[in-house]
């Protein structure tokens, strides 16, 4: 189980969000939607401690920590239980696709190189890039790079994978292959939180859609309900705008 309780984040004077509560069951898939600049990505980054929350409790599996006063050891433990997929892929430019995937298994989990490579090749197979094991990121397409980014997150065997707008930086031609891989993970009941503007994906894959605006969770529910019968006026306005451009 993953739980956020009272998570608050400020940048200087500016409060990004305050007192956010969110709970996920294992195997649950949540898609977070909402206008740009409402703190969706920042919230996701707090769960992985890429941003330091200013208050609240984070619980991932059997680890529960006071977000503001987390120790170095707790932060590392939290990061091992959460994996992150970045908008701009953020692959290690000095490492091959296989080594990008294996890096964490070797350095963090302490697997031998042989074990890590065996698992790494399995993951490459699953993300459809078995033939690119020795390719460096610079020689891969955006879609391939993002699939390696997802592969790196899969390798972490984390309790939850956090996707931060994983298709936003992609040329349209590569979006589908990345979404297809994410759907595949969803079918395997990989717990995930996805911040995305892909409404079609949210509708098909999410167990629950969370709508955020101005640093608050306005409403949440199964996609069937939230998309067809939004309760809050802000949700209605947002969905009208988005769905007018991209009907689903």
């Amino acid at each position: 189980m993953i739980a956020l309780n009272g998570i608050t984040k400020r940048f200087g004077e500016h409060t990004v969000f305050e007192n956010i509560d969110l709970t996920l069951e294992q195997g649950e898939i949540i898609v977070v939607i909402g206008p740009s600049g409402t703190g969706k990505s920042t919230l996701l980054r707090c769960i992985n401690y890429l941003e330091t929350p200013d208050a609240g409790r984070l619980t991932v599996g059997n680890l529960s920590l006071d977000a503001k006063h987390a120790t170095r050891r707790e932060i590392l433990a939290l990061r091992r239980r959460t994996a992150f997929v970045f908008q701009n892929y953020a692959l290690f430019a000095n490492k091959t696709a296989l080594d990008n995937i294996c890096e964490g298994m070797i350095v963090v989990d302490g697997l031998s190189k042989a074990e890590a490579h065996a698992r790494g090749r399995e993951i490459l197979e699953r993300i459809g890039l078995a033939d690119k094991a020795n390719a460096y990121p610079a020689s891969l397409s955006g879609g391939q790079q993002q699939r390696v980014g997802i592969g790196r997150a899969m390798a972490a065997k984390a309790e939850v994978i956090l996707f931060d707008e994983p298709t936003s930086a992609l040329d349209p031609e590569w979006v589908d292959e990345v979404l297809a891989l994410m759907k595949h993970l969803a079918l395997e009941r990989q717990t995930m939180i996805v911040v995305s503007h892909e409404m079609q994906f949210a509708r098909e894959v999410a167990d629950r859609v969370v709508f955020m605006d101005e640093g608050r969770i306005i409403e949440q529910g199964p996609p069937g309900e939230l998309f067809t019968n939004p309760q809050d006026e802000r949700t209605q306005r947002f969905l009208r705008k988005v769905l007018a451009n991209n009907p689903i």
């Binding site: 401690y49 990061r79 994996a83 970045f86 000095n94 964490g104 350095v107």
Partner: peptide
């Protein structure tokens, strides 16, 4: 060296020392 690679290394649980040694310094060397 691209800051997002540092974040990626942290996100999979690497320590500052590990990410310096294995990700940042090799690229800085080049």
């Amino acid at each position: 060296v691209d800051r997002s690679q540092t974040e990626a290394a942290l996100s999979i649980g690497m320590t500052q020392g590990q990410l310096m040694r294995r990700i940042v310094l090799p690229q800085a060397t080049r």
